[in-house]
Design a protein around this nucleic acid. Sequence first.
DNA 1: TTTATATATTGCAATATTACGATTAATTAA
DNA 2: TTAATTAATCGTAATATTGCAATATATAAA
Lengths: 111, 111
Amino acid sequence: MGITKTDAFTSNQNDMAALFKALAHPARIAIIEFLLKNEKCICGDIVDELPLAQATISQHLKELKNANFIKGTIEGTAICYCLNLDVLSVLNEKINSITNQLIVKNSSRCC
Amino acid sequence: MGITKTDAFTSNQNDMAALFKALAHPARIAIIEFLLKNEKCICGDIVDELPLAQATISQHLKELKNANFIKGTIEGTAICYCLNLDVLSVLNEKINSITNQLIVKNSSRCC
DNA sequence: TTTATATATTGCAATATTACGATTAATTAA
DNA sequence: TTAATTAATCGTAATATTGCAATATATAAA
């Protein structure tokens, strides 16, 4: 059906999936890497950097914004987008937690 | 177009996006959580646990397997699926790296 | 006010994903 | 061999995503 059975899963499972989904496209990874290495982080710069149309990049920025990975402030006609440390920290901790649980459990693994 | 411009991005960007994509569904998060807390990890058990049809779960398992998050060994008529620590560690390090870069940079942030 | 500049939104076509019933394949038990 | 069990694959319908041209919106400069 192409539709995810959201109701069938816990809100934590849905939230985690949404975080990963926001990062599940190379353009959005590229945007995050670009924001990491640049002080100035205006949409126009990203359009110059990536081989995608302005409308497409605006769409990817919107998805990253919806997932709270980035935040934008208006600077004249331009918009300054920056990474949001909070959400990245949350994601980091969740993956750390899974990896650590697995390391502990790994002595009694079945495969 | 619904098609991602894979050629336009670095292989590292594509690889990272693929890892995140494999985790971008609540059912696959649920499968990973299930494998984390259970010693026995056979497909049938997951079908009992999740409110999805066997064919659907098999598909999700295939995606996790393709991304190397899980590995399966044949046990009689059943298949024993387990988490692959290696890939989780790689993902963990990548996110750690991004988060740490951002923490260092955060003193001079623009937003 | 008019014009230029920068980003967002809309509409649409192409492709991908999700879900499931039905079937197939492979192994075990009888 | 036959029947039972388990997981993978196929076919298909419904929905989502990606990408872009065109347009809209909003601010700054002239």
